[in-house]
Write a protein that binds this DNA or RNA. Structure first.
Lengths: 208, 208
DNA sequence: ATTACGTTTGACCAAATCGTCTAACTATAA
DNA sequence: TTATAGTTAGACGATTTGGTCAAACGTAAT
């Protein structure tokens, strides 16, 4: 792996632990196993490195989620099944990449303009990034009476966002609910099932 | 207002804009209209000031949400109405205090241990902080058949978390969905209604 | 061997920034 | 008036930290 690549991976690790300002360039270099000058040689500044990191993370998440979306569109499924898969895909992305999740949450809260710029950039560069696809799916499902009359945009936000919740509120939940994290995997699985259950029941159409 | 109080309010403002590490003690002092020495005089260190801020924020949020919970428990309402009020209360807290929301999100992502410590502390000091109350409400509603057979803990997390989503995903949504923020208030209102609709439909019991 | 080019190193700088210290100011009580 | 306690100001110190630089290293082509 190139020094450039190693640096970005290390940066993801450190930024996710310490946040943008909390992270130290020296520490990132050490984690990457390269000289600090190398970091600057390839990424010119902390600001820049941070943007590279965001770009990489969003790219990977988009790549994965849109290819899954593509896949289920080509398969034989009823609408609610498709929606279920989508919810599980997002849950999976967040839970399997907790440090991506942390960085994204931080960026959204602190550098929303950076995030906007990067997403715009990625959308312009990569044809496969097409949020309309998810929107269309929801709208089709609605007009086919598989789903109730719901606002597709709002539903899309809810689906994407709801899967992120557990990670955000983990410490609160641990104390509030007296959760015992020894069985975190079990809890996460239940969490996912519960979300699927909640959302599907919330949007599905029930003929009288 | 005392200098100590002014400092905390200023700190909330600056921490919410810049994050814990991004915030400068000098800037906080300036915002508070006091000398930097005063900040140290009252709060001894940045670390300490940050914890004071978290304490204050969580206290206020708990105070508001639990008193609302208390209020609706004393009123004549059916279970689903109570749940609806709760969802709207949480949405309101987050949307009316965006800087609290940002700080909390940051703290949860970056200093989860601090958050745990503070919530434990607040719970020990303040009798009114009783998460069981919300849990009980959901459980009662379930056993009275007003709600489907759902896991109360999971539902509680979903209710609290789902209201936070809009703030977290705002930039993503703006670009993904091409939202036009001139009518943000309208959008937020629709967002809240949509959430209430989704969650209530998701958990309510429907006799065959 | 020499050139050339990308890569790597460690020392170094300048600015930022947390935190301290001492002296002074204010108000209240004796 | 004097004493005391709480409060404020601003300069200063020590360290951290983002960022730079010139020199060296490796390697592959000429």
């Amino acid at each position: 792996m190139s020094s450039k690549e190693k640096t970005i991976l290390a940066a993801i690790e450190i930024f996710s632990q310490k946040g943008k300002h909390g992270a130290r360039m020296e520490e990132i270099a050490k984690e990457a196993g390269v000289n600090k000058s190398m970091v600057y040689y390839y990424h010119s500044s902390k600001e820049n490195l941070y943007r590279e990191v965001l770009k990489k993370i969003f790219y990977k998440i988009f790549l994965y989620s849109f290819s899954e979306l593509e896949r289920i569109q080509s398969e034989e499924m009823i609408y609610t099944e498709r929606i279920e898969v989508i919810i599980r895909v997002f849950s999976k992305i967040y839970s399997e990449n907790p440090n991506y999740t942390r960085i994204i949450i931080n960026a959204l809260a602190n550098e929303p303009e950076d995030v906007k710029y990067i997403i715009r950039f990625l959308k312009a560069e990569n044809d496969f990034i097409r949020p309309e696809k998810l929107l269309d799916l929801i709208e089709q499902a609605t007009s086919s009476k598989a789903l109730r009359k719901i606002d597709a945009k709002q539903t899309m936000i809810s689906i994407i966002g709801v899967s992120m919740i557990y990670f955000i509120g983990k410490p609160i939940m641990e104390i509030m609910l007296g959760l015992d994290l020894e069985d975190e995997d079990v809890f996460l699985k239940e969490r996912q099932d519960s979300l699927v259950d909640l959302v599907l029941n919330g949007i599905v159409n029930r003929p009288e």
